[in-house]
Amino acid sequence: MRAVRIFVRSIRDAFKSVLRNFSLSFASIMCTTITLILVSVALICAVNIENATKSIEDELSIVVYLDGEVTEEQINNIRADIDSQDNVAEVTFKSKTEWKEEMSDYDDTFETVLNYLDENPLMDSFIVRVEDVNHLSDTAEYIKSISGVDTVKYGEGMVDNIISAFNVVEKIVIVIVIALILVTAFLISNTIKLTIFSRRSAIEIMRLVGASNIAIKLPFIFEGFIIGVIGSIIPICITIYGYVILYGALNGHVFSNMIVLIEPYNFVFWVSLVLVVLGAVVGMLGSLKAVRKYLKI
């Protein structure tokens, strides 16, 4: 009961002191707000880049052309061989007839030329999707060595370049997000530290009248929590409305149809959750760190 009373009183005192020290609380709240907006922007960019990278990588596949005179049985053997590779996710067969139809649909000239020839000059093929694009070329090299395979196309050097570029971009974005979160943590905890510095005499008095360390710390921890949560309100609004409006304005993709934005719902709610948790946790840790300094523990 005693502990519960101290706990409840701490919450009450935290609200009281946020209000009574409003100018300082306001400074902390604004600082939290601004840094969380930055975090939100960075986070949305990061997740979208990650998502775009993934979807473009998914599109990458190996096209395997088979020799002109392969038999039905050979085709099945080659398929089984490709399938047995660890990195192979999916193998689709595309016969030369299918190719012919597709090309005819695409362009009338092709149709005329192809119909002029007695025999279909195209080749049967497999389209292979891989699990990990980083090993795309290894898998392609292996498939090339299977007998009955004529040529293997996977964009060769170009694909390798794109993949390594994506990897670099992804890493840079992750570093930026982590750096921003650290900066946020530092800024918020520093501002709260200043707030608490102005109240170190209060902490001293609490000690003198016999408040236990935990009873002194609790109101400050709740105060940090309140400041963090209030500070995340505006960033959350900006995230939700801003992203929904942006998504609508861009029709869901940037530059080309290749880079597709993530659907706003539930994505914005996840980002909001991250913001409020980040604000609250950083607020609490910041004030805890600041109080400890004056507690002589």
Binding site: R9, R20, A202, S212
Partner: peptide
């Protein structure tokens, strides 16, 4: 060493509140 943001009552009550 009074807490300036607390009233007279709260300042005195404080010593008992922190004992729970």
């Amino acid at each position: 060493k009074l807490l300036p943001k607390l009233t007279v009552y709260e300042n005195v009550a404080f010593a008992l509140e922190c004992v729970g």
